[in-house]
Amino acid sequence: MRQLILGFSLVAFSYSVSAAEHTVGQKNKEFTESSLTIKVGDTVHFRNDDSFFHNVFSLSDAKFFDLGSFPQGESKSVVFDQAGEIEVECAIHPTMKMKITVE
């Protein structure tokens, strides 16, 4: 039992050590990154740097999310827990698009 708990702890520890944080801004109606490659378990913070509201969403199979709308200075985060190609957009301003590759 002790060995099992130790094993789980090691897995959890290595997961938390390897998971990285990334920040993508929204400025001048564009994402600051057109593409981003991350690892499974990484977190991406989407930060609004424009003076008006933005949205962030994805309808991709690998990650489906809708962060609603948020104003300048605020950010919302997504943990990407599955490998795949994810198209990210702003619903309000559909010219804003980026791609996240989760490996």
């Binding site: 969403f57 809708d66 609603g68 709308s69 619903a91 559909p94």
Partner: peptide, 14 residues
């Protein structure tokens, strides 16, 4: 409106 193309709450009536 746009909700038919992008089924997100924010797009209802947009």
């Amino acid at each position: 409106g746009r909700y038919a193309e992008r089924p997100l709450g924010l797009m209802k009536g947009a």
